[in-house]
Design a protein around this nucleic acid. Structure first.
Lengths: 207, 207, 207, 207
DNA sequence: TATGAATGAGTTTTCATTCAT
DNA sequence: AATGAATGAAAACTCATTCAT
């Protein structure tokens, strides 16, 4: 199949189009989430953007940098998303449920643990540090919400960081698929409800 | 320059030594757990076994087969291990705690979810099916224990499969390390206790 | 153009043929001497050997290693050559002249200085060290001959190392070609004679 | 032609700043001398000038042109330099010594032979011709000085071109560094003296 | 049973060059 | 006069796989 025959040099500027750098980052993020660091080649990213590999390198000097940027961007978005949902005026339990439901509804399994593993194997120390900082911020956001609710007495007193991690871990249960591709629950809403019910039994304040 | 001077022909069999096929599988398993499918080359496995790549291919026709076998073997071992611990005569809660502690004490983070992801990306359908069957068996073992305890009334009635998955998910919290390499808890015993206390609040029967 | 269609796997062994490793080294040496490190690609070497790039890498793990080996081999050969000529029973002056003539007759301009420069830019420290050691040995061989003749009184007392270097430097004059490709002298024999006459005026013992 | 109308008072333009074209040429020359043609990328030159690559191309249509210009400029400078020194009223031997000393004192090893080799590999025929012409002029300058001194009887009658080349070749001995970075002589002055003493023994007129 | 030698198709990365603005 | 954005071709290197011995 003939690709759109692009020309050398600077292209005429199209005001509507997303800036290439953003396009690259978004495409890369999507691919990395789907297939992982090693299964995505710079060529794949390029093809996904309809530009050449060299263009990718024009914006991101190495694959590691691209991955780093992709992870950071992703975590930033998730964090903002979490903040947005947690700010709503409904009960804490309801907000958590909504959080889970929305995440499960997103097409892709966002598996923090695995991203961090791939990062630790493939990135340089300084890149890894950046990614870790970003991850930390994300967890901290949930942690702070947990702390706030502890202070309010909504949930029992405990290790807020631990709660944040158990929350994320339980959320990942919702992504599970067996050999036939069946989920544990029929709908995302259902999954979210069961997961949060489970979580809530452990964290609620029943004094 | 001279390579390691191995001798031609069939080597005299050393009774103590593991049969080569096992050696290969064990080495591969260790490496795959540590670094993941794509980060381990057949050369790495060969080096790790002190044999040549061709020897690996003598026993396993493709890398995918080797990975398949490694995963299946690993899950089988874990399953037997789980059975062994769950058979003990102590209380269910104590047995779960022991299970977590022993797993966290193993040097490596055994992340089922990630193995399955790499499998789904890199294996053939039939290989993937085998691996899924093995995974399923492993989960089923925990599930059955949950069911047994539900029947006994130790834990509340609920979805045993869901409980099995939440259990595994919570266990993974114990592996978490932040940017500085710090764990959430000081010792594995401590982590196990906190994790199971949390789990228990959700599953115990307080009727 | 279709290349000779080579097959996968180990080729049937041809007793007459040079071992591939040697073939690679010889080809690489020839190309590096002619065009320099950066102007020779691993593909060029492969094509020159009628094998694939991967075969080159089978024997030499990096281009730097290949260059290192090539330089060392080349200097070793030159050194042995020098020794062979200097051992002959003719007068020192005659032997030097022969040395120059033979070197100029070799098709290629062997420019030590430039090889060392390329080495210093492109090789790792440890590789560079190896090459320097080899270079040193080569110069030392000439130096020792100078020293021997000083002791015999054939040439004047002086810095033997300096003499070795002036000798090599003067030899390089014989390679000079102007824009039209003309040499300074008509024949190699002529060039050698003039160069050594010049050298001799500076080093002869006229006490 | 309109003269640039000189403005009164302080011009907005920074008079001290070199015109960009010169800046590019000087930077390129420096880099090419240090690292050679292939080891210097147009990006390196651009970075060294603090302009973009496209700016380099605005002034020099290809890398080959830039190299050509750089070599010609360099040889021109050296030639003028040589002329300047040779014009002084001291003895010929003293002037040669000074020439060597000053060249050795310049930070970089100016290796004509190597520049010409890189030129012959990388430049187009017409570019190569230009460079050769420039090299020729440079050698001719030394040659003429040799001829003048022959005519005066300062040095013996001989092939002036050959003398010019032996002179340059011997000068290069002063640049030699062994594996530890040690020179043959302690100071440039010392090196210059030894080199010219050696040269002089061969060329002096002792009739 | 095990190996040494080789390949083909890919990977990341570099770089001279082009062109609209 | 100068730049930012892009390309195409090639470079170094990797790796799963093959096969005669």
């Amino acid at each position: 199949m003939k690709q759109s025959p692009r020309v050398l040099g600077r292209p005429r500027h199209d005001d509507k189009a997303k800036p290439t750098k953003e396009l690259v980052l978004d495409t890369a993020t999507r691919l990395f989430i789907k297939d992982g660091y090693k299964n995505v080649s710079m060529d794949d990213v390029a093809k996904g953007c309809n530009v050449t590999k060299a263009t990718i390198y024009y914006y991101y000097p190495t694959k590691g940098e691209l991955y780093t940027s992709a992870l950071i961007e992703m975590m930033k978005r998730i964090r903002l998303h979490i903040i947005g949902i947690l700010e709503q005026p409904t009960s804490f339990k309801e907000r958590l449920e909504q959080l889970v439901e929305i995440h499960l509804s997103a097409t892709m399994d966002i598996d923090m643990k695995n991203f961090m593993r791939e990062a630790s194997i493939n990135l340089s120390d300084s890149q890894l540090k950046e990614v870790h900082a970003s991850e930390n911020e994300m967890y901290r956001t949930i942690e702070q919400a947990m702390q706030t609710e502890m202070d309010k007495g909504t949930i029992r007193t405990g290790n807020a960081q631990f709660f944040a991690h158990t929350f994320m871990a339980l959320m990942s249960v919702g992504y599970f698929k067996d050999g036939e591709g069946n989920r544990l629950f029929q709908t995302e809403a259902n999954a979210a409800k069961e997961i949060i019910d489970f979580f809530w039994l452990s964290v609620k304040n029943f004094s």
